[in-house]
């Protein structure tokens, strides 16, 4: 059974978002998503300062098995990208909730996301 961390929020498309407490947020993909995709081999990230509307394609994570889009969960501006993924995309497999984060961003609000228990329920009903 894949891990769902209680300290963060989730999207239908299996991204997680955590509030850093200073109006910034960090985004990654859930354990369920990395398990489904398998060994990661490439990650395409946006650039610092890029702006995206909710639903825009933000990153591409590509595994041996498939390429998968990561969408902007809300309107946001990218503050920082996880550069270590360039050489070590497998961090998404080994540490999707910590070292395998994708981007840090700034946003006015992050409404409309699921809490951990709702996300857990969607996984169970899949």
């Amino acid at each position: 059974m894949s891990e769902v961390r209680q300290d963060r929020q989730y999207t239908q498309t299996h991204e997680w978002i955590i509030d850093n407490g200073d109006n910034t947020y960090t985004l990654g993909v859930s354990d369920h998503a990395q398990e489904l995709l398998g060994d990661m081999v490439f990650v395409e990230l946006p650039s610092d300062g890029d702006e995206a509307q909710a639903g825009d394609e933000l990153c591409v994570v590509e595994s041996v098995k498939a390429a998968s889009d990561v969408y902007a969960p809300v309107d946001l501006q990218v503050l920082e990208i996880n550069e270590s993924l360039e050489d070590e995309p497998e961090l998404i497999n080994s540490s999707c909730y910590d070292d395998g984060w994708l981007i840090k961003f700034k946003a006015d609000n992050i409404e409309g996301l699921m809490d951990a228990s709702s996300y857990q329920e969607t996984l169970e009903s899949e």
Binding site: V41, F42, E44, E62, S63, V64, A66, A67
Partner: peptide
């Protein structure tokens, strides 16, 4: 045979 020089995976 094909070899991709850039990023991405051929499907």
């Amino acid at each position: 045979g094909l070899v991709l020089e850039g990023k991405g995976v051929i499907r």
